[in-house]
Computed example of a mutant assay.
Amino acid sequence: MKVEVNQKDFYQAINIVRKAVSTKTTLPILSGILLKTEGQRLRLVGTDLEMGIEAFVEAEIIEEGEVVLPAIYFANIIKELPNEKVDLEISKDNNTAFIKCGYSKFNINGSPADEFPSLPKVKSGKSFKIKEGRLKEIFGQVEFAISKDESKPFLNGGLLLFEEDKIKLVATDTYRLAYREDSIEELDIEGDAIVPSNTISEIAKLLNDSEDLVEVVLTENQILFNFAGITMVSRLIEGQFPNYKQVIPKNSKTKVEVDRMELLRATKRAALLARQDADIIKINLKEDRLVITANAPEVGQAYEEVSISLLGQETEIAFNANYLVDCLKAMKDETVNVELSGSLAPGVIKRDSDDYVYVIMPVRSA
Rank of each mutant, 00 (worst) to 15 (best):
Y303G: 01
F319H: 06
V338C: 07
G300F: 10
L310A: 06
A366D: 15
R41G: 05
L44I: 02
K168G: 12
K100R: 15
K19C: 08
S151C: 07
L207F: 07
V217D: 06
E60I: 06
N243R: 06
E215Y: 01
L344I: 13
Y103S: 15
V258H: 01
Q301H: 02
L263Q: 05
I360K: 00
L206D: 08
G133N: 10
K350S: 14
F319G: 12
L160D: 09
V357L: 13
I90D: 09
V45I: 11
E80D: 14
N208Q: 13
E202H: 01
N83R: 12
L27N: 09
L264P: 03
I189M: 05
K79I: 12
Y356W: 09
E181A: 05
L169C: 04
G110V: 02
T293L: 03
Y323Q: 12
A97N: 07
K286V: 15
K166A: 11
V336R: 02
P120L: 07
Y11K: 10
G312S: 07
N156A: 12
K85S: 11
L177A: 10
P242I: 09
A294T: 03
V306A: 08
Y358M: 12
E339F: 03
N109H: 03
A178C: 09
V195F: 03
K100E: 15
